[in-house]
Design a protein around this nucleic acid. Sequence first.
DNA 1: GCTGCTCTGC
Length: 699
Amino acid sequence: MAFSLPHFPAQTLTAPTAITQFPDNPKTLILKQCKTIKDLNQIHAHLIKTRLIHNPRVAENLLESAAILIPDIPMDYPISIFEKLEEPDSAAYNLMIRFFTLKQSPNEAILLFNEMCERSVRPDEFTFPCILKACSKLHALKEGEQILALIMKYGFGTDGFAVNALLGLFASCGKVEVARHVFDGMPERSVVTWNSMFSGYTGSGCWEEVVGLFRKMLEMEVGFDEVTLVCVLKACGRLAEIELGEWIHEYVEANGLKGNPALVTSLVDMYSKCGRVDTARRLFDEMPRRDFVAWSAMISGYGQASRHREALELVHVMQKTNIEPTEVTMVSILFSCAVLGALETGKWVHSYVMKKRMKLTVTLGTALMDLYLKCGSVGNAIEVFRKMPSKNVFSWTVLIQGLANNGQGKKAIGFFHSMVEKNITPNNVTFVAVLCACSHAGLVDEGRGFFASMNRDFDIEPMIEHYGCMVDILGRAGCIEEAYEFINNMPIQPNAVIWRTLLASCRVHKNVEIGERSLKNVVRLESAHSGDYILLSNIYASVGRLEDAVRVRNQIKEEGIKKMPGCSVIEMDGIIHEFFSEDNIHPDSEEVYNATENMMKKIKLAGYVPNTSGARLDAEEDDKESSISHHSEKLAIAFGLIRTSPGTTIRITKNLRVCMDCHNATKMISKVFDREIVVRDRNRFHHFKDGSCSCNDYW
DNA sequence: GCTGCTCTGC
């Protein structure tokens, strides 16, 4: 990629000076060197003693130090100085407006601006950028427009700072076109002007525009700075623009900018989102100081790359540092916990959130609910839901989908009705969740009703996912012919997922003819998985056509179709243990195999009969039995039995669907060993207890 | 002296 390297503005460094002694005649300069509230208190006392405080210029400098220069100052300190001013001028008001905006009280800033106008204090050129920033924070477009009128009235319409701030206001309110209009009309643009435009595009998710504008900037040989690069990197990540991202990385290296944590964190984020998480990790490891944002970015980077185990390993490293994670960090951690089904780590996050009294934001609350629902802890999820001070359509959707997956379809539908009653408008994802609930609960007529309602009552056009849900509803309930007709009459082209869904229903209801046609359609639309062939093979086996069953199985080998190895995961003391079918990768695999054998012996005594119809049909009976007894979830359950104390619930997460034999075996295990076992497969949950399963053998 | 700054859930 050929870019010209524009000149990069030099950084200015100001070395902080400690106040060591007190001059007899304090100059305002001293005040600006105050770094702590203690310094300020000393000077303040001195000014009162010497009555210098009554000098308006001195008092104003004191106010500036208190309001702007000292971090973490109590709110009332600058307020009390301001209130003692006899006749505050525009400069004093400006300082206070900036102070309130800085301290996240933009409302107070606007009130003060009103007071300023009422007291007929004439605003100066510094007033408008300050007050517009307060409006930006509040997304107060109306107020901003009134201020625009005042800017023109007082003749600051050509002031660069005022126009920049105005541009920033439009940008932050999502009015990117208006902002761009202002931008294009400006005779001169500073780097801040460009950055305001970038940040507006970024805030509205206009990633292409960010990259386009940056290329224009390079063409015009306009100097950019670190803030520009942060915005552009964010866009590169979303667009997977790895080439531009790498170019920026080179630029950062060449210009010695790796000391800027925000910039390097943006690089980490960009590389993660472009799928180059190892490069991201290298940069992260090289950072001299890693703040909580850097940790959050790296943890979420692993999550987005589906490398959840590494995400949680990094969390354990972070716990050993002094870094205080925030709500944002917690959301990323919870996401990985939820995917893995890592309930222990997730519960640690929850207790940490409570201990630190973190705000239960919509995002955090929803992520917590998602964790509990994906770990099969429905009660905990509902408790979080009830405690959330505000909920949005995501929160409701997560709850409905989660209940559906946990076999509580009717409850899920109940929550959908209360959501509508509370005037939360469902979106298309909500309807996927609702239809899923109908499918898991076997509610055919309700499903038809919701499908019809989404377009009629909510103006949502059904998408391929919704059609897929309907096929699943009809197929699972045994209406195979109707499902087949439904697919043929769909107004959109069916995809492989749709046909795969019907194929799975044909397996349950032993429909050979439509099963064969479904597989043909899957193969026609995309390269089929081994699982698709196994489904058809099992259909043949279930109606006694063993030769056909073997033939289809052999096709997998002959045609070199990739097999997805079965994998089950169990968490123990925060460590994720993975088991694959018939593998011995796990460090304790000998012990695990022995435990599995014992477990199988015990349940056989209690009446379990191996069901080998899902095993390789060309194998000898003994081999078949041994092969199915080494399915990954049996290994994981056996490991759980020997490593946890009696009575503890065993939680397994697996990547494929549960096979018939494992389902039967697990029911028996739950009875013989008196354990609750929760298995999350790729579609839904199975809660095993006392020899039965929450899915009522319908999955 | 003012304006722009990275990490989040289906």
